[in-house]
């Protein structure tokens, strides 16, 4: 029987392994960066989220919506954690359409904490028209809606290493992936070449460059740093309770290990006099 298992294992390895190797070198896979929120004890870096918010607000938000993000979220613990006054100030800088009022008319008023992040375009067709026919995707959960393809051994080891950062790695890589198209590749009109975009031809022009957004805390104002910060911010936007989740998870683990230990000894005691 051992032989069968060995044979089977070999067959499985062939089945899984061969195509995985063959697929390699096809595309440039996003590099796995190190993130403060990775791993069982990972937490968001508040300063990084605040910087990322600045990049998001000054650059991304001019084309992309983030409909599930509310101004009140900006003051949330385990997030950018601005003071409530700061979040209110941000909100009041935007004009929100409200109404209808008593005269039956829609009107503009300054944003409140309970408003969601205002979309740059009134609807999808308007967004398309303004962006050469391509719809800029909503960024609220984009960090969970993107991942890079993981081959055979990777998808198993990822379960053990708790790798959940495929989306942020992809965003970081994408923002850094604008390069000259290799020879022989014709980039279609209105599209741009990106090393990491599936198909390599992306409608979004290179959005970030060195020095574009002003950082006041001494962090280097580089493309790499911007993309790292904004990716972290988008991860928070997609998963605002990550800090809480990991904290509770640790408590649950300690508790369950203690309980299973106790149950193990209880079980041994109960079965002590029974041959089984």
């Amino acid at each position: 029987m051992k032989k069968t298992i060995l044979l089977g294992a070999a067959a499985l390895a062939l089945l899984f392994g061969a195509p995985a190797f063959a697929a390699e070198g096809h595309d440039d896979l996003p590099h796995r960066e190190s993130w403060s929120f990775a791993g069982p004890f990972g937490t968001y870096d508040t300063a990084q989220l605040q910087r990322g918010f600045k990049v998001f607000r000054e650059v991304c938000a001019s084309c992309h919506s983030a409909n599930y993000l509310y101004f009140r979220n900006l003051a949330q613990e385990g997030g950018p954690h601005f003071t409530e006054a700061q979040a209110k100030a941000v909100a009041s800088e935007y004009q929100i359409t409200d109404g209808p009022n008593d005269q039956g008319e829609m009107f503009q008023r300054p944003g409140r904490l309970s408003d969601h992040w205002p979309a740059p375009f009134p609807n999808d067709p308007a967004a398309r028209v303004a962006n050469g026919g391509a719809l800029p995707p909503d960024l609220s959960v984009i960090a969970k809606a993107r991942a890079s393809h993981v081959g055979f051994p990777g998808f198993i080891t990822d379960a053990f290493t708790q790798y959940q950062e495929g989306g942020v790695d992809y965003i970081h890589a994408l923002l850094n992936g604008y390069v000259e198209a290799p020879e022989g590749v014709t980039v279609q009109a209105g599209l741009n070449y990106n090393k990491y975009f599936p198909g390599h031809q992306i409608a979004m022009p290179k959005p970030l460059s060195d020095g574009q957004v002003e950082y006041t805390d001494g962090t280097p104002a580089t493309l790499d740093q911007y993309s790292r910060d904004v990716a972290a911010f988008l991860m928070w936007a997609a998963e605002p309770y990550l800090d809480t989740r990991k904290r509770i998870g640790f408590q649950v683990f300690v508790f369950l290990i203690v309980l299973s230990g106790l149950l193990y000894f209880t079980k041994k005691k109960v079965w002590k006099n029974v041959a089984h």
Partner: peptide, 19 residues
């Protein structure tokens, strides 16, 4: 000793259910 083990297990389990 056995009773203690049972009580401890039961108590921890009850805390877990409440949690």
């Amino acid at each position: 000793r056995r009773d203690f083990l049972y009580i401890a297990t039961g108590a921890v389990g009850a805390v877990g259910v409440a949690g």
